[in-house]
Amino acid sequence: MSAIHVTTKINGDVVDYVCEADETLLDVLRNRLGLTGAKEGCSTGDCGACSVTIDGRLTCSCLVLGAEADGREIGTIEGMAKGDELHPLQRKFLEHAALQCGICTPGILVAAKSLLEHNPKPTETEVRFGLAGNLCRCTGYDKIVRAVMDAAQEMRRA
């Protein structure tokens, strides 16, 4: 199979790249574009560390071909803060110590942002099921859930 030329938008910027037909979007982001915020924890869609959004929908970038991004809008962790202003979720994760090693954090933040966009007032159970696709091995999720609930409350007030 031959290389494919792709034009897409990543975090609002137009990006062009050439990728192999069987190359995943995760590999494109990490190896071709230097966007290493999305992490590879499993490459089978079971850990969520590579979470991104495509046209606003949450997905695992390991389950998407780079070629499929053509004409789409991709959102990654690198686009979450606006300049020097952190997204409320990013701030709350720091305040609540909702990360230990931090490898799952980018994926969880992208997933949590998507969750709050669809459901600005989630219950604890909704947060837990909303983040069930993101494995964290350090925290036991307690502080993550608290940080998301707290951020949701702050975002509702804003």
Binding site: A21, D22, S43, T44, C62, V64, L65, E68
Partner: peptide, 23 residues
Amino acid sequence: LAGGTDLLVRLRTGFIEPDLIVD
């Protein structure tokens, strides 16, 4: 290729080696 949530796993693990993928 529709959603790809199974196809890509099989692709990645070398379980399949396609000559053609139709999206």
